[in-house]
Design a protein around this nucleic acid. Structure first.
Lengths: 124, 124
DNA sequence: GCAAAAGGCAACCTTTTGGTTGCCTTTTTC
DNA sequence: GAAAAAGGCAACCAAAAGGTTGCCTTTTGC
């Protein structure tokens, strides 16, 4: 019989949060601000659902690294995962991208309006 | 006479890059993925140019922290700065936001097309 | 011409990130 | 019913991020 199931260090940390609602633009942008994650997401945006093994196949990273990135995307609401059999299938979720896009739109609009006002002022 | 102009540690690091052309979407998203930076940028997108002192006035951060964030935004091409007199004025630059937006558009479009194909397949 | 305002620079420090490795559990497949 | 495939979990590590402080230079305003 073994003394303990756990092997490595013994530090004990609480960690983890519920966080179900979809996060604001900042977190979405942060999630998009990494090359690996951005490419995972664009891959998944073709509508096909993929397993972790599939997604880690064409990177030089380990499966675990990819898993972490997928979790970041998931916490940002950009993908969802469901466990089917022995694998978990990841799929794209359009919501946050739409929101992010409209955030950028608002910024652009604010800028355009400022320009328009300036131009109007100069031309009068 | 003082022995040396420099005071603290003496480590010597090279650092810094030229990097003039505007960076890809990843760096832009990364720059947007921080609350301080996002708010600085939306503030500046009203077209008004502002000094560092002005921009750090309404945050709890130090001027230096704000300066760093501004430099990140600048390296991402999102703002430009010109030194005028004793202050440096920061202004919004629309380019990268437009690009980022169209990147998100492409992702959305790819998703929409996938959905459309799926629907067509199911309905036939 | 001097004090105050605005910044730049660089050293430090702490927390987060991005990534790896080891090992255990659950499904599949022969 | 075992071996192999797919993952999960947690510890660990190095590097990058975010922030602060100290001090020096340049402009501006009397």
């Amino acid at each position: 019989m073994k003394a303990d199931g756990r092997s490595r260090r013994e530090t004990s940390r609480p960690m983890s949060k519920p966080e179900t609602a979809d996060p604001g633009p900042v977190e979405v942008f942060a999630a998009l601000g990494d090359p690996t994650r951005l490419s995972l997401l664009t891959k998944l945006s073709d509508g096909q659902t993929r397993s972790i093994a599939m997604l880690s196949a064409d990177t030089k990273l380990t499966r675990q690294a990819v898993t972490k990135h997928l979790h970041v995307l998931e916490r940002a609401g950009l993908v969802k995962s469901i466990r089917v059999g022995r694998e978990s299938q990841f799929g794209y979720r359009p919501g946050p991208i739409i929101e992010a896009r409209s955030y950028l739109d608002r910024v652009s609009v604010q800028w355009d309006e400022a320009l328009a006002r300036l131009k109007a002022l100069v031309e009068r």
